[in-house]
């Protein structure tokens, strides 16, 4: 199962993306009770780097938080720092190598992970239902341009924060993915990428999609080209959404094995595993259609 959703507002840089994405996600809670998460794009006009860092899976992290903040300060000025539950959120005046910054933070301890990094991207995910996201992190207060979300029914790997979705494509700022399905050539792809030095943070097959897209985009492909190429490079069943700072797109596998519906109006694009999610946020929006096998769509922000 699993439920995925996406939303893009065409009219505003300060749309209530957090609230909309949560409203949609709440309707799909029954598809994925194990964990829930969102990746929100908070709008343009800022060249600071925002980091969402997992300090650990459970416990008290005051010391780690202080150490990590100190480490980050050696690379760039920390403009803001706040914590909620396992997360440390930092705004840093840094435009250097993302890998270098991640590595410096993650060397603090084994289970420290940079969950998201980018100028606009903020990922919040955790074990439990979508309601927890609001209670613990106040996701509905976040405004911006677009966002994606995921509710997870775990079938092949463990249930913890890191194995939850969305996945940030580690190393490539502002690229996030949510996936419903199974990538059956995951182990082959993972082995190939690991041989090239890519670090995998989880045993979740969905993680490889972000790695794959980051690889294709870094070779100069557009998002549309990368999603289209993935129809043949990824095996198995999938409907997945990918989002960058100014795009939202989806791809559906060659045999249409997983549901994904979408509709577009003059003011927004809405995508979801089930229409119940679209109805929950946009009652009576109309024009909803299920994506066909091998269908790829990408919407750009104006």
């Amino acid at each position: 199962m699993c439920g995925i959703i996406g939303f893009l507002d065409k009219t505003s840089d300060t749309a209530p993306v957090g609230e909309t994405v949560l409203t949609m996600l709440n309707a799909l809670a029954c598809r994925g009770p194990d964990s829930a998460g969102v990746a929100l794009f908070t709008g343009p006009g800022n060249d600071r780097t925002v980091l969402r860092i997992k300090l650990g899976e459970k416990g008290v992290f005051a010391e780690r938080q202080a150490n990590i903040t100190k480490r980050v300060q050696t690379l760039g000025r920390v403009l803001a720092a706040e914590t909620s539950e396992e997360y440390l959120r930092l705004e840093v005046d840094y435009q250097g190598d993302p890998q270098q910054l991640s590595a410096l933070i993650e060397s603090e301890a084994d289970n420290v992970e940079v969950v998201s990094m980018g100028n606009a991207l903020e990922i919040v995910k955790q074990v439990g239902s979508p309601e927890n996201l609001e209670q613990s992190h106040g996701v509905s207060r976040i405004t911006g341009t677009h966002g994606i979300g995921h509710t997870r029914l775990s079938t092949e790997s463990k249930v913890d924060l890191s194995h939850s979705q969305p996945f940030w494509a580690h190393g490539r700022p502002d690229l996030a993915v949510v996936h419903n399905g199974h990538i059956t050539n995951y182990h082959n792809l993972r082995r190939r990428y690991e041989q090239h030095g890519v670090r995998f943070y989880t045993d979740n097959d969905s993680e490889v999609i972000g790695v794959y897209l980051a690889d294709r985009l870094s070779q100069g492909m557009t998002l549309t080209e990368a999603l289209t190429a993935s129809l043949y490079d990824l095996d198995g069943s999938f409907s997945y959404l990918a989002a960058t700072q100014n795009e939202l797109g989806f791809a559906k596998d060659r045999f249409a094995l997983k549901p994904l519906l979408f509709t577009e109006t003059d003011s927004e694009v809405v995508v979801a595993t089930e229409e119940i999610a679209i109805e929950n946020a946009f009652p009576g929006i109309g024009g909803v259609r299920e994506a066909q096998a091998k269908e790829v769509q990408v919407w750009q922000l104006n």
């Binding site: 249409a256 549901p259 519906l261 109309g286 024009g287 909803v288 259609r289 299920e290």
Partner: peptide
């Protein structure tokens, strides 16, 4: 059965 919109799989 009549559907004014689209149908899924």
């Amino acid at each position: 059965v009549i559907v004014r919109g689209s149908a899924g799989n």
